[in-house]
Write a protein that binds this DNA or RNA. Structure first.
Lengths: 210, 210
DNA sequence: AATTTTAGCTTACACGTGTACACTACTGCT
DNA sequence: AGCAGTAGTGTACACGTGTAAGCTAAAATT
């Protein structure tokens, strides 16, 4: 009942998850990790791995879930900053870029598995990104009073641009270059916002005519 | 001097390249291919591989180069179609989507290696995509008379959106859904074009004032 | 015609992999 | 107190891997 056992199990499970995360880097993808390596890094015998996951795939999906969690925390953080005033786009991009800097490997995981060889992984990543997109879509519809379909297209395009910029940022060390990239990304998001706002207005005008 | 030998060598080199390409699929990435598998598929003894490439990496870079070639052929094709009249954006997207359908695995290679674990691969892919972007940038500057910096930002955003759409298209079988995706992509590109044109005009106006 | 080069072969080896199996020690339930 | 369940261990095996070494036959060079 006390659960000292379950507690310990959860603890070494985390050891495995963290071991996997720690091994990820620019040069090391999840798919290139072996069960034995992860177990070793966690300080476990290879066969002990199976007490926690049936598969490396299962561990991987857990990692993707955690990455999604990180993404959602990011959103919350961005919302808080936005509430304090300032350019929504600028704050969003800056917050995102901070994530890249502090959690590069988690982000790399998402990027890689999105185009990876496992359908389950791809689906999981896409699900997390879709969630991200939908949040933005809701915001646009509500705060900017956009047409529903237009809001979705804008949100989708914006997320695509931001993720791509994040991917580029991963390969940049120079601080100045990163700022340059941020500025460019912000401008690109403004392009999209501008175009979307216009289409939304046009559609509204048509509706009024009827 | 006749070169019957060199000719034969080139032939089996192609055998290796094609063998690698043929093994690529949604479920199989280049990095998951082994030297032995490729050699076997090409009908060669494993060790014969070394007569043509020092490494799987060298083969991989060759593949990326070929993929870049395919991309450039695509551009030429699109330009020809555009010359015959019609919406530039629509024709470009449709042409690109045809590439996805006919050369999905080549495109997958680019997508995956762009975020892969080898710096050399990443650099090679980025080089090809940059070439693609620059072509578009030149076109925009010239045909649409855009400010240089604005043209680059538009080209960059457009390529990002199109590649992302291509990536999504790879996971879609349904024809109707694909058309839907194309339409959405076209609209998103129009957002960007709209925003870019506006910024370019504004910048021009400022310059005139001086 | 004799010699050198070389594309391709077979054999061989050391290494890392996933995982089956049997065992131990300790928790948790009855 | 005693029994069942289980997190973790070490050993063992079959398999696929990259690649070194040496050989053969045919093309190219001399």
């Amino acid at each position: 009942m006390s659960g000292v056992r379950a507690q310990q199990k959860e603890k070494t499970r985390r050891l495995l998850v963290d071991a996997a995360l720690n091994q990820l880097s620019a040069e090391r993808s999840f798919s290139s990790l072996s069960l034995r390596e992860v177990a070793k890094e966690a300080g476990l015998a290879p066969t002990s791995f199976y007490r926690h996951f049936t598969d490396m795939d299962e561990l991987g999906l857990t990692l993707v879930d955690e990455a999604g969690l990180t993404l959602r925390q990011l959103m919350r953080q961005a919302r808080q900053r936005i509430a304090k005033g300032g350019s929504v786009i600028q704050i969003s991009v800056e917050t995102f870029m901070e994530l890249i800097e502090s959690n590069g490997n988690v982000f790399r995981l998402l990027l890689r598995e999105r185009s990876g060889t496992s359908a389950a992984f791809r689906a999981a990543v896409i699900r997390e990104i879709r969630y991200f997109t939908m949040e933005l879509c809701d915001y646009l519809q509500q705060a900017k009073d956009l047409d529903a379909e237009v809001a979705y297209m804008q949100a989708n395009a914006a997320v695509t641009i931001v993720f791509s910029a994040g991917s580029d940022a991963l390969d940049i060390d120079d601080k100045y270059e990163r700022e340059q990239l941020s500025k460019q990304t912000i401008q690109q998001l403004r392009f999209i916002a501008r175009g979307a706002a216009e289409l939304s207005d046009r559609r509204k005008a048509i509706r009024r005519k009827r």
